[in-house]
Simulated scan of single mutants.
Amino acid sequence: MRVVAAMSGGVDSAVAAARMVDAGHEVVGVHLALSQSAATLRESARGCCTIEDAGDARRVADKVGIPFYVWDMAQRFQEDVVADFVAEYTAGRTPNPCLRCNERIKFAALLDKALALGFDAVATGHYAQIVERDGRRELHRAVDMAKDQSYVLGVLDADQLARSFFPLGDTTKPQIRQEAAERGFSVAKKPDSHDICFIADGDTKGWLTRRLGEQPGDIVDTDGEVVGRHEGAFAYTVGQRRGLGLKVPRADGARRFVVDVQPSTNTVVVGTEDLLGVDIVRGDHTRWCGPPPAGEVRVGAQLRAHGEEIPAVATATGDSVEVRLRQRTRGVSPGQSVVLYDGTRVIGSATITGTDRSSARVAS
């Protein structure tokens, strides 16, 4: 096969590209230029997409002996990921930009361009596995659960999976670093990037404030009493406890958390921890990795990239899904994603639109 290997400049994508060559594919390395200010060199383990990263990717490609190109997708990334991130926070939701990047950039824009240029597939350094079964490719969790990235790949549909390779899914991260060192890759000990790649300092609140400006408003309790002030409701998310700066403590001294963000009134609502627990999650923008589930199906539901999997029952209707969790979980916010599993197999995902609490639990 003719394969585009997406090379971020990190150790994972370096080994993924090398493994695709070893498997006998005709491989071309491609670095996606996603930053509109890529001249800034990396100053820490945060962030990615810098000139330094492109240089690291090029050196690996030279070592492996494959052609290497930089594809400028900064404008597309700005429109489909960064602007979406700002719009979601402005609407009082909490998005996951990594899922949007996988959906709209790496497995839409990148894959579409690769196919248009005559390539057959795209390979990335994600930790997940593709399993062939009954003539169909399934997405499964990685062997290394500590690095498993199947959650952020839950937005891929069957057609995209048919043209995707994840060569690292059967290997642990320490083994990947050892392999990179044995191959002589200079990135073998390079720190992993983490957090949100376009917010290199990790300060999401500050980044949003610089984009949107200060928008002062009230923090109220569930009775409507003003207990504090904020500089922008967009900077708060359901489940948040730190950084609230409340001026009026509860009489019983109980800790308070954000339980709702109301952008229409620029209000943040706080309440006690017991109000955070939900066991019904509703979502839309469903993306199925194969045939959509029919009727009620027992699933495992994961609500965060590194969250635990919760036994549940899911019912899909059109572009929507309702997931009834067997146990209550806290801090679930609209805008986040729920990814559904059948064992290690990813069924699909949805963007959370709302939550609720039932009077009865889902039966075991």
Rank of each mutant, 00 (worst) to 15 (best):
M7T: 04
M20G: 00
E26S: 14
L32C: 06
A33H: 07
A33N: 10
L34W: 01
S37H: 13
S37P: 05
S37N: 12
T40L: 12
L41S: 13
R46P: 05
E52G: 14
D56C: 00
G65H: 09
F68E: 08
R76V: 12
Q78E: 15
T94K: 11
L99M: 12
C101G: 00
I105D: 00
K106P: 00
A109L: 02
D112C: 07
D112Y: 07
K113P: 03
A114H: 04
L115W: 08
Q129I: 05
I130Y: 04
D134F: 08
G135L: 03
R137W: 06
H140N: 03
H140F: 02
R141M: 08
V143D: 05
Q149C: 03
S150H: 03
Y151C: 06
L153D: 03
V155C: 12
D157Q: 06
L161C: 08
A162T: 10
A162R: 14
S164V: 11
P167I: 02
L168H: 00
Q175M: 09
Q175V: 05
I176P: 01
I176G: 01
R177I: 03
E179G: 02
F185L: 05
V187F: 08
K189R: 14
P191F: 01
D192S: 15
D192G: 13
S193G: 09
H194K: 12
D195H: 14
I196L: 11
I196A: 08
G202Y: 11
T204G: 07
G206T: 09
L208F: 13
L212S: 10
G213R: 08
P216T: 12
G217F: 07
G217W: 07
I219L: 07
D223Q: 13
D223F: 13
G224S: 06
E225Q: 14
V226R: 15
V226L: 08
V226Q: 15
R229H: 14
E231K: 12
A233W: 14
A235S: 15
G239H: 11
R242P: 06
L244G: 11
A251W: 10
D252R: 07
R256F: 07
V259Q: 09
T267D: 08
G271C: 05
D274S: 05
C289A: 13
P293E: 07
A301D: 03
Q302W: 02
Q302M: 05
L303I: 04
H306E: 14
E309D: 12
T315I: 14
T317D: 15
G318T: 07
S320N: 09
S320C: 12
V321P: 00
V321D: 01
V321W: 00
R326P: 01
P334R: 06
Q336T: 12
S337F: 14
L340F: 02
G343R: 07
V346W: 01
I347H: 00
A350T: 08
T355G: 03
A363N: 08
